[in-house]
Design a protein around this nucleic acid. Structure first.
Length: 104
DNA sequence: ATGTTGACCTAGA
DNA sequence: CTCTAGGCCAACA
């Protein structure tokens, strides 16, 4: 059992700040943690401890692609579309519009 | 400790 | 557009 203040726990806390219909990138999370641990963020998502409590599906790549998901990319796209996000060919449409910015 | 991999990012050519 | 190089963090062998 890792500490509740561990790196991945911080990522989950940030994810829960994301409102419905918005997304963030792995880099945004890493930057919010004062670091560049992009891969560590992805690794924390891959651990996927609570896919229901933590909206891991609201995290996409910085280039606007959907990226990957533990339950499958198709499932991820379906969840995002259900929140009103338009996706085409694994690419986020109106990416700058649906992008969420963390607030201190 | 060392090396590799990973739901990655940025910059340069 | 593709490709290469460098970077940072966590987990595993």
């Amino acid at each position: 059992m890792p500490d509740a203040n561990s790196f991945n726990e911080q990522c989950y806390a940030l994810l829960m700040q994301i409102p419905s219909g918005k997304l963030v990138t792995y880099g945004d999370i890493a930057h919010a943690l004062k670091g560049k641990a992009y891969q560590a963020v992805g690794n924390a998502m891959a651990a996927n401890p609570n896919p229901i409590i933590v909206p891991c599906h609201r995290v996409v790549k910085s280039n606007g692609e959907v990226g990957n998901y533990s339950l499958g990319v198709d499932k991820k796209i379906a969840l995002l579309r259900a929140e009103g996000i338009e996706i085409d060919n694994n690419q986020i449409l109106n990416f700058d519009t649906v992008r969420f910015r963390f607030t201190p």
